[in-house]
Computed example of a mutant assay.
Amino acid sequence: MKNKRWLLYLVVAIVLVVAFFLVRDRIHFDWHVFGEQLKLADWRRIGIGIALIWMAYGVRAVRWSVLLKPTKKVSPFKLVGSQVIGFTAVALFGRLADLVRPYLVAKRTKLPLSTQVGVYTVERMFDFGCLALIFSIVLLFSPDRANLPRPDLIHKAALGGLLATVALAVFAILARVSGKVVAGIVGKGLGVFSKSLGESASEKILGFRDGLNVIGSLGDFLAILTISVIHWLMIAYAYLEATKAFVAAPELANMTLARCMLLMAASMGSSMLQLPIIGWFTQIGLTSAAMTALFHVAPEPALGCGAVLLLVTFMSVIPLGLVWAQIEHVSLKQVSEESEHAGVESLTAPVQDAAE
């Protein structure tokens, strides 16, 4: 498995190097201008962006604590380290280290990993839902929405995102209240076309319902929703501060929240399949390309801003996480491998049990 993974990394690296040599003569890039853009940047704004991202890890710990309430009362302060170390592992080792956070929380709280994977799943559901909600509202009601690139398409996409968020919320409520009934209806409906597809869909809905059981009450749901919105607003303003720091580039210095939402979507989309080390450069490249394509930013400030955005939103946690890991005597490489192995066992255990 590891050999195949490193083969994938090697292939991606070769493709990137070849792509660079193919396009380098077509792009007029001035490294002196690039250096001046970084030199003139307002590093106070960049510092504010990093502070917002760091505080967001604390907010995540509060949300995880609320999600744990039906199972065990745990102080958010006990969970901050797991969040910081977990995101440090992702920054260094890619998305394969995503299970480090639930794995560390399970060890710290002495709760089964399967329950923490359920918490992680619900956390992600709130992340996607609240992010889509914020994107949609900002893009639909922003004062400068008419000046966005392709406003007609953006309006349709934002409206579709809002409707999809509402549909997800309705489905989640139905699954939480009557998951067995919903699973039966969907299973029978899809079973007309394929019995295995119907059974698989039914099992996934029941698993989704079990994950939602970590939400203890309506009050907890509203608390988690509020915390999630605050969390993503903090991240959005971290993006905005880091972008507006490039005062020598008018397109970036005058960035609005609506425009920043488009840039944030491009940046986060490029990070979905994050690979170790290589992913840093692909994310910078794709984010910079989005700035140039959407807002006509020159290549030099676009590349500088892309690198700073990666630093602020993704890599700034690394020094903090490395120190925290030393304090808690955690080996990042070891815990990444253990969490991946334990996560596979946790997910396959129910299947094995059912077979027996």
Rank of each mutant, 00 (worst) to 15 (best):
L168W: 13
S267K: 03
Y57F: 15
A266P: 11
A91V: 12
A238N: 10
W6D: 02
G129C: 08
E241D: 12
G216C: 08
P250R: 11
S346R: 01
S339L: 07
M261H: 08
G216K: 15
T287K: 04
L8M: 13
P319M: 08
T313S: 12
K78P: 01
V351Q: 06
R60C: 06
V80R: 09
G343T: 07
A293M: 12
S65K: 08
P149M: 00
I137S: 06
P151F: 04
L252G: 09
G211P: 07
N147F: 11
P70M: 03
D353W: 00
F246Q: 06
L79Y: 06
E328K: 14
F21L: 13
L206W: 03
R145A: 06
I173N: 00
G184V: 07
V214A: 11
P350V: 13
I48T: 10
W6I: 13
A223R: 14
M268W: 12
V23G: 03
L16R: 07
G161P: 12
L310W: 15
A19R: 11
K156A: 10
V17Q: 00
P149K: 05
V330C: 09
R5H: 11
M234N: 09
W54M: 14
T165N: 00
A89G: 09
D144Q: 05
V59R: 05
L303Q: 02
L79G: 05
F29A: 05
G306Q: 07
M234R: 07
L52W: 04
T165S: 13
L168G: 11
L92R: 05
T88P: 12
L233C: 12
V117S: 02
E340A: 14
T109M: 05
A249M: 09
F314G: 01
V100Y: 08
L38S: 03
